[in-house]
Simulated scan of single mutants.
Amino acid sequence: MSGLVLLIPIALGMGGLGLAVFFWAMRNGQFEDLDGAANRILIEDEEQ
């Protein structure tokens, strides 16, 4: 039982940290161009 007193706050803290990082990524535009990376692999670069 005493282990839960330590593990539950750690798990809640890690979940809150993950949520904060997700919202930071949303605010900084990390998820704006989802199709660009998928299409970029299909475009052939011209060799000089």
Rank of each mutant, 00 (worst) to 15 (best):
L6H: 09
L19E: 12
A38R: 05
D33G: 02
F31S: 00
G29L: 03
G13S: 13
D45Y: 15
G3V: 10
A37H: 04
L17M: 12
G29H: 01
F31A: 01
V5C: 07
A38T: 05
D45G: 13
F23W: 04
G29W: 01
A25M: 11
S2Q: 07
N39G: 11
M14P: 11
A25Q: 14
G13A: 15
G16H: 13
E44T: 15
I8H: 02
I8V: 15
M14R: 13
G13C: 12
L12N: 05
I43P: 00
A25H: 07
G13H: 09
R27N: 09
S2K: 14
P9V: 03
N28T: 08
E46I: 13
M14S: 15
D35G: 04
F22H: 03
M1W: 07
G36P: 00
A37E: 08
L17V: 05
L19A: 09
N28A: 01
D45L: 14
A37W: 04
A20L: 10
F23Y: 06
W24M: 04
N28S: 04
F22V: 02
F22D: 00
Q48D: 15
L6Y: 10
L19M: 10
V21G: 07
I41N: 05
L19I: 08
L7M: 13
L7P: 02
M26T: 04
M26E: 05
A37T: 13
Q30F: 08
N39S: 07
I43K: 14
L17F: 14
F23G: 03
Q30T: 02
V21N: 11
F31D: 00
G3K: 03
A38L: 08
G29V: 05
I8Y: 05
D35Q: 11
M14W: 12
L34Q: 01
F23C: 08
E46P: 07
F31W: 02
D33C: 07
F23T: 13
W24R: 02
F31Y: 04
M14I: 14
R40M: 12
R40K: 14
F23K: 00
G29Q: 08
V5A: 11
Q30M: 06
